[in-house]
Design a protein around this nucleic acid. Structure first.
Ligand SMILES: [Mn+2]
Ligand SMILES: [Mn+2]
Ligand SMILES: [Zn+2]
Ligand SMILES: [Zn+2]
Lengths: 136, 136
DNA sequence: TCCGGAAATTAGACAAAGTCCAGATTGCTG
DNA sequence: CAGCAATCTGGACTTTGTCTAATTTCCGGA
């Protein structure tokens, strides 16, 4: 599947998001790469040719995408949030030295023995992060 | 087991940390409460009576504790890092609304099916975070 | 006890990520 | 074209955390 700017509009509409030029560019940055990007990285990508999207819009848009379930947030680095175009259930490997973040398919991973939650609580998600580093 | 200021000194020495007044106060804040605290919270606790420990020292000391393995870092909130006096292997439940963070004993939790790591990599730790919220 | 150096602490300047707001622009629809 | 809502914008602001140069504390030897 190719993620062109043209089919970004449909993707956005499908998530109840009015497709504007800026939103299409930001979605395209994430989905064409299929990578975990920080707001700063999105900002840089979207403004490579010439400056056309403000910082406020990048942050607002990423938050909107998040609310609408178009992207997911990954919190592994204390200094910045990553946005993940992959919203299927999956886990992460984080290379602490390089900051490289990659996906682990949740398909074959099983987590058992978690204690029951109090009745008035629901699970919103389970984040599993394997922190790795280069062998000495 | 009681965590008094007096036995903090021994605890610090056992981790190769020179016990100074500030370090004892900061360790005492964490260990007497057995709670997950942010740097800001530590700062507030340590300076309740009268200001006696600077921001720089709080941050430096928490980083030192981390390096020496006295405390652990928990990254669940994009806006701040929590420091955890519990260094035994365990997982976390995070209430997204309230920000409340609590422990899950790792004893009965089993994680299987993780893919093998490349040969030149070692696992530094596995963080499992159950994000929960109040039922609607 | 006094001295000198090493270790620790400090205030405050600085940096980076993220938020907020009031005004400008855009894109309808009548 | 006018009116109106939605969107976007620059830039001020906040918060978390880092850095540095100067000061203070600690300790061992003379
Ligand atoms: Mn463009
Ligand atoms: Mn005191
Ligand atoms: Zn991912
Ligand atoms: Zn914990």
């Amino acid at each position: 599947m190719h993620y062109t700017r043209d089919n970004m509009a449909g993707l956005l509409r499908g998530h109840d998001i009015n497709p504007t030029h800026q939103r299409i560019e930001i979605a395209h940055a994430l989905f064409s790469r299929q990578e975990h990007l920080s707001a700063d990285q999105v900002m840089a990508i979207v403004n490579t040719r010439h400056s056309e999207t403000s910082k406020a819009t990048v942050y607002n848009t990423l938050k909107l995408f998040l609310e609408k379930g178009l992207v997911r947030e990954v919190i592994v680095d204390p200094s910045k949030v990553f946005f993940d175009p992959n919203t299927t259930p999956h886990h992460h490997i984080y290379e602490v030295d390089s900051g490289k973040l990659s996906d682990i398919d949740a398909e074959h991973v099983h987590i058992s023995g978690l204690p029951p939650l109090p009745d008035n609580m629901v699970t919103e998600g389970i984040d599993l992060i394997v922190r790795v580093r280069r062998k000495a």
